[in-house]
């Protein structure tokens, strides 16, 4: 493996769901769920992907794992193009990229004991002799904080936190370099959620496992991620290091999202909701996807889709917004100007 390059590189990835119904089934443009998304994950890095429901987070994850086949773009995993990979190569790659889903109850077979479920990946990838497998499974359970007593139990006999740990243990058994965690802590109660977040950090630090950590919860993302990508309507609108993003969010959508998270502190109450435009069923314009809800929208926002611009001269901070184009007027000059009337 090339240790200096990124572990996972996604270039201009697009996925459209084909039209499902009616006479135009399979024809026409369908629904664009992921549009020209590019980002990279370094070995041992936790990349947090945040966005509201329907923004394309899970579709993106499924494309990376090639559970869905994107129509355009490239996915390079350790330098190899997954979209061009044959079945054998894909199988090899999948051993090294595992996945943890949101609901462990549906991810584990209700008819199998935890032990049987944990044997599966080792059998599938022909890892170790049967006796070694037993040892690896017990060691894997210990790593996520469970003891061997759960091996003969069924999923319904465990608590939701324990089940999610089992899913994480199962994902770790084949020895992956990358784990895609799709809303892996969203169904957990806060007291247990904090335990799983701590586990993710430990795995990343001690075993150098990279994560694509998907969540709708910005506070959770801040706890685990090194780098953060913000998705809106299928596009990655802002990518930055965690500290840059939370210290200085640049995209108007990221700012609105941050402002909308309710703070568990009654002395910091907000009176007005941050973002207009929820309550209209009008479709978006051809320009920027966020234009209709953006308080700083300019005339150009309605006509042209924005490109990826470095934010505040920082090449590691990418913002998909006209306000940060090199030719744009500084923000200060535009403040006070009202939006064009509808």
């Amino acid at each position: 493996m090339n240790t200096t390059g990124p572990l996972l590189q996604v270039q201009h990835l697009s996925y459209r769901f084909p039209a499902q119904h009616g006479v135009f089934r399979g024809q026409g443009p369908g629904l664009a769920a992921v549009e020209r998304v590019s980002f990279a994950i370094a070995p041992g890095q936790v990349f947090g992907l945040v966005g509201e429901s329907g923004s394309g987070k899970s579709t993106l994850a499924r494309c990376l794992l090639r559970l869905l086949r994107p129509q355009a773009g490239r996915v390079l995993f350790a330098g190899r193009d997954l979209l061009a990979a044959g079945p054998a190569e894909l199988r090899q790659a999948r051993r090294r990229m595992q996945v943890v889903f949101q609901d462990p109850m549906t991810a584990l077979s209700p008819r199998r004991t935890i032990g049987q479920s944990l044997h599966e990946p080792l059998q599938q990838f022909r890892l170790g002799s049967p006796r070694e497998r037993e040892d690896r499974i017990v060691a894997g359970l210990a790593e996520v904080g469970l003891d061997a007593g759960v091996l003969n139990r069924y999923p319904h006999q465990l608590s939701s936190g324990q089940r999610q740990r089992v899913c994480i243990a199962r994902a770790l058994l084949p020895g992956p370099d990358l784990v895609v965690a799709d809303e892996a802590v969203s169904a957990l109660d806060v007291s247990v959620q904090a335990q799983v977040l701590k586990l993710v950090r430990e795995l990343q630090r001690e075993r150098g496992i990279a994560f694509l950590f998907i969540s709708h919860d910005l506070a959770v993302i801040q706890q685990v991620a090194d780098r953060v990508g913000v998705m809106y309507r299928g596009q990655l609108v802002e990518t930055a290091s965690r500290d840059d993003l939370f210290r200085q969010p640049l995209h108007p959508y990221t700012r609105a999202l941050l402002a909308a998270v309710p703070d568990p502190d009654p002395s910091a109450r907000r009176e007005r909701p941050a973002l207009p435009g929820q309550l209209s069923r009008k479709p978006a314009t051809t320009g920027c996807a966020f234009e209709s809800r953006c308080e700083q929208a300019m005339a150009v926002c309605r006509q042209e889709a924005p490109g990826d611009h470095p934010g505040n001269g920082n090449p590691q901070h990418r913002v998909k917004c006209h306000a940060y184009a090199p030719t744009a007027k500084p923000l200060a000059e535009r403040r006070g100007q009202t939006r064009d009337s509808e």
Binding site: A219, Q223, D243, R247, L258, P264
Partner: peptide, 16 residues
């Protein structure tokens, strides 16, 4: 145990 958004370094959370 409840994560809170901080403007900068994350605030520590401790699980129960």
């Amino acid at each position: 145990a409840t994560p809170r958004i901080a403007h900068g370094e994350p605030l520590p959370v401790s699980p129960i």
